[in-house]
Design a protein around this nucleic acid. Sequence first.
DNA 1: TCTCATAAGTTGTAGCTACAACTATATGCG
DNA 2: CGCATATAGTTGTAGCTACAACTTATGAGA
Lengths: 157, 157
Amino acid sequence: MEPARWLTTREEQAWRLFVAVLMLVPGEVEAQLKRDAGLTQVDYGVLSALSEAPGRAMRMNELARMVNGSRPRMSQVVAKLERRGWVRREPTREDGRGSLAVLTDAGYAQVVAIAPGHVAAVREAVVDALSPEQLDQLAGISATLLDALEARRSGSS
Amino acid sequence: MEPARWLTTREEQAWRLFVAVLMLVPGEVEAQLKRDAGLTQVDYGVLSALSEAPGRAMRMNELARMVNGSRPRMSQVVAKLERRGWVRREPTREDGRGSLAVLTDAGYAQVVAIAPGHVAAVREAVVDALSPEQLDQLAGISATLLDALEARRSGSS
DNA sequence: TCTCATAAGTTGTAGCTACAACTATATGCG
DNA sequence: CGCATATAGTTGTAGCTACAACTTATGAGA
């Protein structure tokens, strides 16, 4: 264990601001989804991913990767969406273990109905709030952070 | 209601990457705090804020602003920290309504013990993963997003 | 074929979070 | 003063999240 390397003033400032963003921005976007449709960001991600998938269907596993969630979480989320009639589950034909989450017509209609409001919220909270340069920077920073995370997970296991 | 303005490919790409960051990065940092001390990011924020406050004490209200949390949440968090012996609550002298959260000696020792590991996790997950330019960009972007949020809250109430 | 390891999903549980309702004190105004 | 309103904190509850344990199926190898 090396001696602790503290953060410089500049680094700490950046971190503090970023933490505030991490705390507040997701809440802003989720508030709209919750108000308009009683959905979570993850719920919306699932419905949205299914709506764009071939056959409007996906394996649970794939769905989990798609929305950056764990498998247990997918089970819970899909169970909830199933109770509301927006998704149904079918056994998989090729793999006896798997489940296939399928978007129902009601679920598709729901996505179509919600999407505009969600996009507007995303615009208001992030996209339109930043300059085009900042948005590009944000994309680059995000990609870098995700790569680093991925590298850490493969490397130091 | 204006017609929905969709996201361009570039905007959507940036948003998707950013959502992944919002989902994954907090979890990375919290995992370390949870592992080493059974603490949440907010818990740590509270202890840390108290440790730097004059008299190692703060009003609940002020504490809430400090860590970007709601007052109900502070009550819960401080109650938990109090059960663990790291914080105690006192009535306020000037204002009969208020509570004052005070960091105990054990709580201060806890902060001192944890801080280096936390800083190392923050470095690994964010600060050292980015170039100095990117870190500055991130600070700017975060400030912009927070300003926009603040403006929305004052303006459109 | 039999066995073991691995993978896909589910379930159970404990802890965290958000939101509304409630108590108590303080402040402003007629 | 006396009432109305606003503010500080707490509590209760419902829903979400993380993690471990479990079930079932696949696949690889003796």
